[in-house]
Design a protein around this nucleic acid. Structure first.
Length: 899
RNA sequence: GGGCGAAUAGCUCAGCUGGUUAGAGCGUCUGCCUUACAAGCAGAAGGUCACAGGUUCGAAUCCUGUUUCGCCCACCA
């Protein structure tokens, strides 16, 4: 006998051990079944799992298990990301707590610490990932900074360099003064902020010029003033010079098309070293660039003795003061504009002229646009495709060098003796130009995404083109990730795979939503609103967690996650458990064998379904009741729907479908009806076999969502063979859908519901049995009589009479349903006034409905233009409503007659 | 400044290609510890589908516009 309650922790421990011991997650490399492959978006190795990861992992595990059970050779590769900046920062912070600063350490010492830190956190995060029940192939685990991935990164760098797609140059980059590294455009977060627009007069013999700026401190580095070439009123100044206040430098006025004559004063100060626009102007007009802000965000010596060493924001205040003092500050007005900040630390980005490595993206983007255009790669939900396209078609070069220590070091060596630099796969011993041995490797490392973008093939043995995994498992099937990294990662993976593999990295991109807290805020550490998934798992169980998330996550929509919602999953898990207890308890009590390995009974659709699902044969000839046929039909329907939902990436709908079937069809109706036979005296094997079959198939359907509880129950089912994961996912069968059985069940449900309704309306004690009579045409009355035992039990009826002769009289409560009428005799219990009120309410509603239908049918164009089946449906509806209405009037009349 | 998404019951959301009586979970109300389950069972109440037009025999669903909220992109300093 099963325990009274499911023990999620015990089951998790047990099945993790069991799955691991049996080694069932890695694919069969010799199989000729179609592969289904996913690479896990690698979490930050020094991070902790948050609820968002659980959602992504749940979706992927769901797909993997479903495909595996559907006959695919599945592979899911786990791994972690070295996450350059993020990791370096946490390691630095940890060292700081020990009183050590990175500045005082050698690179090697720092890296030793970083690796130690990585090892520690890696163990932890892997431990966490194992608690989710994910079917990862740990034998293929990868890390973006391990040896094989380093080889791939170097190969890629060298190839791109040789192709002219990587270059080094001096450009304005996004500089984070806090992290002291360049970052890519994608890492800049634009935030609207209230600021000011300062209007400053630059005096000139030819007439003063007034510029408007949001960054007065950069005026110290101005080397020109620009106007729009279309601005007739100002054109005469072009070629003249103006005096830079404070500094006193003479700077020229130039005309450039980027200047908008409508904005501000129509004059733009040009600071080539600190503004990307101005940098462009300077290039076009051959203007010098003067760096006045350094890498720490402090003013340089170039900024002048009065400002050198000041923080840039302090310098802003001082500069404004000076301008005011000099009488050149014309006005200050409030101005709201977007400020670039570093997405990792929130520091305001300083555009800075600096020498960096860049990847030329345009040539890589073109094929990547094509494969999406021709649907070799599809996006779910499809709207993300446009987001991808618009980014790809306006793509800009990618700054890949980072001034960090933690990461893939740039494989470039500079020579002390000549200008040549050596770009090499293996560390060179000498300069490739002059042969000199005084060479130094570039100090910088590569952007983390420079290793992540190889993630579909770098874990499969690339650059060895003959690596068996590459041949077998690439391209992968689907990428499951969040929409926030479409540019960072998805787009770049597509480009990298096309460039280096000559094929797409994956066929489909499935984008999950962002998990938010109960009031819509993004989960974040600083807000403290992200619960620890492991706490949730301990408290609620993995299955409950996974099921709840699945159910609440329409594809690509943000999820408002609230711990209370876990009740959905927990309650459902319990429901499954309890239903299983009922079934297994009943099976244990049966003395005759239900099935056997060989021989046995062979005929009939159910016997065949049993054989196909369980590989054994029934040991008796099943004698199916109406409800048996109905639940088998509903099971098939559920399996069909579920598979269809999954095919269409609507995992949440699939989850709801199974939930509804199991809870409301199987538990609420079938189990209750089954009790008639289970607790009766007759032959029980048919109902037991049906119970076992439907339960078994149901938990197969649920397995991808709730691996532990289903595996646990499966192991207790007498007909189970092997692990649940090794069994075939129910596909459903159109031919198994039994319309007649479903109609019959509908009739039974209607009768039972009507009686319950009346009982509740009159507060009939639950223990009281009431006589039930059903007025119906003989054909249908026969069906009702056939289902008598079930109706008696479910409706709490004392007796059941059905036929065309059934009549009602005063003291009866009656409810019409189409052409039948359910009559419950309550003798003195019925309150005449209450019953009349009840009937009149019903009457009003029915009259309303009828009027609507009648109006529709009276409309000539409706009858002429609507599809015939729709018109027919309306006619049937009218007939039904008319019948019901007549019965209601009859009942009301009866109450009046002698009341 | 562009683009996208959302707006349906008190709350959180379903409602796929327009067509039965707009559904579920939670919450509320009523009655039940009925030999699987009170993490449960039965019943009930609750919606002018954001607003305004339009297309159509028919609109929560399609189109246009408006409002509110959210997100993404963007070199008007």
């Amino acid at each position: 006998m099963m325990e009274k309650h499911f023990d999620p922790t015990g089951a998790r421990t047990r099945w993790n051990r069991e799955w691991d011991a049996r080694g069932i997650f890695p694919p069969n490399d010799r199989s000729d079944r179609e592969p289904f492959v996913i690479v896990l978006p690698p979490p930050n190795v020094t991070g902790v799992l948050h609820v968002g990861h659980i959602l992504g992992d749940t979706v992927q595990d769901h797909l993997i298990r479903w495909k595996r059970m559907s006959g695919f050779n599945t592979l899911w590769i786990p791994g972690t990301d070295h996450a350059g900046i993020a990791t370096q920062k946490v390691v630095e912070a940890a060292l700081a707590r020990e009183g050590k600063a990175r500045a005082d350490m050698t690179r090697d010492d720092f890296l030793t610490h970083a690796w130690k830190w990585k090892e520690h956190h890696h163990t932890r995060i892997v431990e966490q990932m194992k608690q989710l029940g994910c079917a990862f192939d740990w034998t293929r685990e990868a890390f973006t900074l391990d040896e094989p991935r380093s080889r791939a990164v170097r190969e890629v760098f060298v190839r791109l360099y040789e192709k002219g797609l990587i270059y080094r140059g001096d450009y304005i980059v996004n500089w984070c003064p806090s992290c002291q590294t360049a970052i890519s455009d994608e890492e800049v977060q634009h935030e609207e902020r209230d600021s000011k627009l300062w209007w400053i007069r630059y005096p000139s013999r030819d007439g003063d010029v007034v510029v408007a700026t949001t960054r007065p401190e950069t005026m110290l580095g101005d080397t020109a003033v620009a106007v729009s070439p279309e601005d007739a009123g100002k054109r005469h100044l072009v070629g003249k010079t103006v005096t830079l206040p404070i500094v006193g430098r003479q700077i020229p006025v130039v005309a450039d098309a980027v200047v908008d004559r409508e904005f501000g004063s129509g004059f733009v100060k040009v600071t080539p070293a600190h503004d990307p626009n101005d940098f462009g102007i300077a290039q076009r007009h051959d203007l010098p660039a003067m760096v006045v802000i350094d890498r720490a965000g402090k003013m340089t010596r170039e900024a002048g003795a009065d400002f050198a060493g000041l923080d840039r924001f302090e310098a802003r205040r001082r500069v404004v003061e000076r301008l005011e003092k000099e009488g050149v500050l014309v006005k200050v007005e409030p101005h709201r504009h977007a400020v670039g900040t570093h997405d990792r630390c929130g520091t305001v980005i300083e555009p800075l002229l600096s020498r960096q490595w860049f990847v030329r993206m345009q040539p890589l983007a073109e094929p990547a646009v094509r494969v999406v255009e021709n649907d070799e790669i599809t996006f779910y939900p499809p709207r993300w495709r446009n987001v991808y396209m618009s980014w790809m078609t306006n793509i800009r070069d990618w700054c890949v060098s980072r001034q960090l220590w933690w990461g893939h070091r740039i494989p470039v060596w500079y020579c002390d003796d000549c200008d040549h630099f050596t770009v090499a796969r293996e560390d060179p011993a000498a300069c490739g130009g002059c042969g000199g041995t005084k060479i130094r490797q570039d100090e910088d490392v590569l952007d983390t995404w420079f290793s992540s973008w190889l993630w579909t093939f770098s874990p499969m043995g690339w650059p060895d083109a003959d690596a068996p995994d590459l041949k077998r498992y690439h391209p992968t099937s689907v990428l499951v990730t969040g929409s926030e990294i479409i540019f960072f990662w998805v787009a770049r993976m597509i480009m990298a795979s096309l460039e280096f593999m000559g094929e797409v990295p994956f066929r489909h991109v499935f984008l999950t939503g962002i998990v938010r807290d109960g009031i819509g805020r993004k989960m974040s550490k600083s807000l403290g609103n992200s619960p620890d998934p492991l706490d949730i798992i301990d408290q609620w169980g993995t299955d409950a967690f996974r099921f709840t998330l699945s159910m609440l996550s329409p594809p690509g929509k943000d999820v408002f996650f609230d711990e209370e919602k876990l009740e959905i999953g927990r309650n459902f898990t319990n429901k499954i458990w309890q239903a299983s207890r009922l079934v297994l308890g009943a099976v244990e009590k049966e003395s005759q064998p239900i099935f056997a390995d060989g021989g046995g009974h062979d005929g009939g659709a159910f016997a065949a379904a049993w054989r196909e699902a369980h590989g054994s044969t029934l040991s008796f000839a099943p004698d199916l009741s109406g409800e048996d046929r109905w639940i088998l039909s509903a099971l098939s329907r559920c399996a069909l729907d579920t598979n269809r939902c999954f095919e269409e990436w609507r995992l949440n709908d699939g989850a709801s479908r199974i939930y509804d079937f199991f809870w409301h069809d199987f538990c609420d109706w079938y189990l209750e009806l089954a009790k008639v036979r289970l607790y009766g005296e007759g032959e029980r094997r048919t109902v037991l076999a049906v119970l076992l079959h439907v339960l078994g198939e149901s938990i197969k359907l649920m397995h991808p969502l709730m691996p532990y509880v289903t595996e646990e129950i499966w192991s207790a089912l007498p007909m189970a063979r092997g692990l649940l994961l090794e069994n075939r996912y129910p596909r459903g069968d159109e031919r198994a859908v039994d319309g007649e059985a479903e109609a019959r069940m509908g009739l039974l449900r209607d009768v039972v519901t009507s009686v319950r309704n009346i009982r509740a309306a009159y507060r009939v004690a639950p223990s009281a049995r009431v006589p039930v009579r059903v007025h119906a045409p003989e054909e249908r009355a026969a069906l009702v009589r056939e289902a008598a035992e079930g109706i008696l039990r479910l409706a709490g009826a004392a007796s059941l009479e059905a036929g065309p002769a059934v009549s009602k009289e005063k003291g009866d409560a009656a409810t019409p349903i189409g052409d039948i009428e359910v009559v419950v005799s309550l003798r003195d219990v019925v309150d005449i006034d209450a019953e009349r009120a009840r009937l009149e309410r019903e009457q009003a509603k029915t009259e309303g409905d009828l009027a609507a239908v009648a109006a529709k049918l009276a409309n000539q164009s409706f009858v002429a233009k609507a599809k015939p089946e729709v018109v027919e449906r309306e006619r049937e509806k009218r007939l039904r409503l008319e019948t019901e209405l007549a019965r209601l009037r009859e009942s009301i009349g009866l109450l009046r007659a002698d009341g």
